[in-house]
């Protein structure tokens, strides 16, 4: 901590106060981390430690086990893990790819051209994002069913694309607008065509924005549950979130070790990708919002 340097000038009362706030900070940290720690802890404990009146707070080497992960992934009683991973990955990447390409093209139109209807389109994008997907499940189910796309990755991805695209367009639009037009104009003075200037100058500068937006799309589709519940109705077409849910439905006593292992498996990609882009999550709302 850097407080030691400054502490010389501070009164004892002030130092005591700082220590108090430090204590509160550690407490807050513990409160937020505890559930995650508890999930990991349980996932590495053998069943006799989980189902006992003793509490095991750490999977010490003598009891540490990977059995829960083995049970979660390979048990014959539940929906198979492998296909669920494959389904989740396919739907997620299909969604990501379509959203990035379609959204990117749209964001160019919305930032580099001025035309009648542009504002209306943007407002519409904003309003669409406010329609709760939970309200749409019934009609989307009827429509996807009508196209005979129930239980298909394609059908699910279509619904995901519709859900994620408005956000993608909105975010990418911000990134593209952030690259000054003057850069392109300079390239055009040097002899580039408008399209050439865009591809050679603006596009490379957008790479970080595209990656960040893509990761948002990934996390959204990866964690999605409701649409998958409606559209993927057979065990072999389940996505990972549906697979995780099957662990909770078992009527006899829940095997919490396996559930926690499964929860870890579902969370790992989401957490990793989230940590990569977290810096961009809260910034947008604040920019320019403080009354100066």
């Amino acid at each position: 901590m850097s407080t030691t340097r400054v502490a010389v000038r501070r009164s004892p009362a002030r130092r005591a106060k700082d220590a108090g706030w430090g204590l509160v900070a550690v407490l807050v940290f513990c409160l937020f981390v505890f559930p995650v720690y508890w999930m990991l802890n349980t996932s590495f404990l053998p069943n006799n430690r989980i189902r006992g009146e003793e509490i095991s707070f750490f999977p010490t080497p003598d009891v540490f086990t990977l059995d829960n992960y083995r049970s979660a992934m390979f048990s014959q009683e539940r929906a198979p893990f492998g296909p669920a991973v494959l389904n989740s990955l396919s739907a997620t990447f299909l969604t990501l790819l379509v959203c990035l390409v379609v959204g990117f093209v749209a964001s160019i139109a919305l930032t580099r051209f001025s035309f009648k209807g542009r504002r209306t389109f943007l407002v519409l994008i904003l309003v669409i994002q406010m329609i709760p997907g939970e309200a749409m499940i019934i009609s989307l189910f009827r429509i996807i069913d009508g196209w005979a796309l129930i239980n298909t990755i394609f059908g699910l991805s279509l619904v995901y694309v519709a859900g994620v695209l408005p956000f993608t367009i909105w975010t990418l639009r911000g990134f593209v607008a952030g690259v000054p037009k003057e850069l392109e104009q300079a390239a055009m003075i040097d002899g580039c065509s408008p399209a050439g200037a865009f591809w050679r100058v603006t596009f490379p500068l957008l790479a970080p924005g595209l990656v960040a937006t893509g990761i948002f799309a990934f996390i959204n589709a990866w964690n999605e549950f409701i649409m998958a519940l409606v559209i993927m109705q057979r065990p072999e077409t389940m996505t990972l979130t549906l697979w995780l849910r099957t662990f909770l439905m078992v009527t006899q006593a829940t095997n919490w070790g396996a559930v926690m292992a499964a929860a870890v498996l579902v969370a790992i990609p989401a957490v990793i990708f989230f940590l990569i882009v977290q810096g961009r999550m809260s910034g947008g709302l604040v920019a320019g919002a403080v009354k100066g």
Binding site: M1, P35, T241, F247, A263, A267, V271
Partner: peptide
């Protein structure tokens, strides 16, 4: 700085959990 980072790490971990995972926990 140090303690603020500590709190941020805790918050980020909670934030990044998929809803279904946190419900099971």
């Amino acid at each position: 700085k140090g303690l603020r980072l500590l709190v941020s790490v805790g918050l980020l971990l909670a934030w990044s959990m998929p809803p279904l995972s946190s419900t099971t926990i």
